[in-house]
């Protein structure tokens, strides 16, 4: 039986803002993660991707919606059943520097969740900690070290090892490599790919580096102002984005090839992201959209099949076609 089917249904997370009403950080988001799937979630700061991640692991209380793990609603469960299920979805933080206690050795950090889970035998705990270190490619003698003696990449490996302690089916990784040096990022990404291959651990992978997400993920979801504007197979979305925001985002990311980088056209967005407290009518991207029309202000587009995935746009693919023409005509 394959376990770890995570379904997010119409999830909404709101925050009160003093004197200004309510900020809708995540607005009616539905996503499904198949067992062992790596699903990328991209978007810019403030789009709600981290809030979504926190809600999935139970750190934010949704205003509405369900989070189902193999059919059980994580938002409704109580007591020991809740604790039991929660263990199966674990968070890996962005900053390995601040997410590990400087007062604990690596071994203690890894043994803590084991103790909470009721593993009372000290020897068994130490053995399990060594095993966890090995899973993320660290030698077992690292257990006696303190976080300060580790490099950033090694600390992030420990962060992943800690998340693995409770044998989760799903890891929610919030920008796990953004704080790391470029040459070290690949090592951590390979740890995640290996965990999926060896243990079948799925991953909701939040990042802003589209090149990285493209290579790591099976599917990509693009978030803008609290909602998913496009979702589709990784390669299809990366090569042929349907939504104008995905198109702009992809065209904005510089590529390492100087010939390619200097010959291609970009969609340079103007204006600022609309306020999540006071959303515009219709499509929420229309205030910055280069191809927006009256219809976009009157009628909010919902996610509909477009290309190999789905996009929330009245004119899917149009921005991509215009950009290709611009590049072709120089």
């Amino acid at each position: 039986m394959s376990a770890g089917h995570l379904v997010i249904e119409s999830l909404t997370v709101k925050f009160p803002v003093q004197g200004k009403g309510t900020l809708t950080a995540v607005d009616d988001v539905s996503l499904a993660l198949a067992p062992g799937e790596i699903l990328g979630l991209v978007g810019e700061s403030g789009c709600g991707k981290s809030t979504l991640a926190r809600a999935v692991v139970g750190l934010e209380r949704p205003a509405q919606g369900r989070i189902l793990l193999d059919g059980d609603d994580l938002t409704q469960l109580k007591g020991s059943r809740r604790r039991q299920l929660r263990r199966r979805v674990q968070l890996v933080f962005q900053d390995p520097e601040s997410s590990l206690s400087p007062r604990l050795t690596i071994g203690q950090t890894l043994q803590e969740p084991l103790q909470i889970m009721g593993m009372s035998d000290r020897v068994a705990r130490a053995a399990r900690a060594a095993e966890l270190l090995e899973m993320v490619g660290l030698p077992s003698h690292f257990a006696s070290r303190s976080p300060g003696a580790l490099s950033g990449g090694q600390r992030q490996r420990v962060g992943i090892a800690r998340a693995l302690a409770s044998e989760p089916d799903v890891l929610v990784c919030d920008e796990p490599v953004s704080a790391l040096d470029v040459s070290v990022r690949a090592q951590i990404m390979n740890v995640l790919l290996d965990l999926r291959a060896d243990l079948g651990v799925g991953c909701l992978f939040i990042a802003h580096d589209l090149g990285l997400v493209h290579q790591a993920c099976d599917r990509i979801a693009v978030m803008y102002l609290g909602s998913i504007v496009e979702i589709g197979p990784s390669d299809a979305l990366y090569r042929a984005p349907e939504h104008p925001y995905s198109t702009a985002l992809l065209s904005a990311v510089p590529v390492a090839d100087p010939d390619l980088e200097r010959s291609r056209s970009r969609v340079i967005l103007t204006g600022e992201v609309a306020s999540p407290i006071d959303l515009p009518s219709g499509c929420r991207f229309r205030t910055r959209c280069p191809i927006g029309q009256q219809r976009c202000a009157d009628d909010a587009p919902s996610l509909r099949p477009a290309g190999a995935g789905s996009a929330a746009c009245h004119f899917p693919g149009q921005m991509r076609v215009e950009l290709a023409q611009q590049t072709a005509t120089g």
């Binding site: 990022r185 290579q215 099976d218």
Partner: peptide, 9 residues
Amino acid sequence: ALPGTRFRG
């Protein structure tokens, strides 16, 4: 890059 392939570094 092909999605799902290992990273070089």
